[in-house]
Design a protein around this nucleic acid. Structure first.
Lengths: 160, 160
DNA sequence: TGACGCTCGTTGACTCGTCAACTAGACTCA
DNA sequence: TGAGTCTAGTTGACGAGTCAACGAGCGTCA
């Protein structure tokens, strides 16, 4: 119907890209829905609590959180606002540098994280991992690690 | 520091999942930024125009668009509103069923899509495909196709 | 000391997409 | 025919996250 002069994607390349895009949307939506339904918490909330739990003294500067979650600093400010309102996190100012404010996991936040972790990790297994064999997971990990933004070996996915 | 009684993710499983999540965020952000910078259009806009270009008579009912893009019907209404305002799409009512309104690609929309396609596909190649060999792409396509939401063989990624 | 430039976090205004409620039209069945 | 129900699409109110602008604090260098 028209020219195909522009660079085209076809075959496996297209399949890989489409599956990558669409599966991500579907899985994340489902993951979020389950976490919200069972623990009143979004996947982002969970992610933030997890990073804090894994950090030294269970606290991180706002900027550090923003970097890990791939949100902007203003995005993190608002997300943390919500978690503070639910007493899962508290803000702690830094005595050495007054510009810095830490997000610090409360005991309640830690407990909430542990509870939600069961649901969340089970969901990840069911929606993602269960579709592959052990060697396939390794293969997938190896391939996906090459993509921009992929970072590895930064702690566990459950509470330490 | 705490018990690890809850199910845990470790090793390749964690790496695969983390890379999957984080690479997606990074790639999509970059893809969107490039499309916006060069063509004043988001990746979602592009996606909608592409689905229309590939559809019979270059038009689709709103619900069909919603399903393909994994947006809700209200989300699609608003996205299409924007594209209509830019004359890339027009709404056409269905004579057989007055409930249905088609989103129909205009010539301007088609031309815009062709232009943006060059940028977009080049970006996908650079950010995603370039990191793998041919056989690796096939492997990846095969693996990712098993995930929920992944659908394959539904046309090309460029204008037909 | 103090002006300059940088970083950190927050805020206002905005965009994008959701959910729930709604309207309008089509189908079904008595 | 007409009540009940279902589907398609839109709208209002909202939540989440972005960008741009800002205030405050730190470091540097003259």
């Amino acid at each position: 119907m028209a020219t195909t002069a522009e660079p085209d994607l076809a075959g496996s390349a297209l399949d890989a890209w489409r599956s990558y895009l669409q599966s991500h949307a579907a899985i994340l939506r489902q993951l979020d829905a389950e976490l919200v339904a069972e623990h009143g918490m979004t996947a982002r909330d969970y992610e933030v609590l997890l990073y804090l739990a894994q950090a030294p003294e269970r606290r991180l500067a706002m900027s550090a959180l923003a970097e890990r979650t791939m949100l902007t600093r203003s995005g993190i400010t608002r997300l943390v606002d919500g978690l503070v309102a639910h007493d899962l996190i508290e803000r702690v100012s830094c005595p050495e540098d007054a510009r810095i404010s830490y997000a610090s996991l409360t005991d309640a936040g830690y407990e909430k994280l542990r509870q939600a972790g069961c649901t969340h990790i089970a969901s990840i297994r069911r929606l993602f991992l269960a579709h592959f064999s052990g060697p396939e997971i390794e293969q997938l990990a190896m391939l996906l690690a090459r993509l921009p933004g992929a970072r590895m070996g930064e702690g566990s996915c459950s509470v330490e």
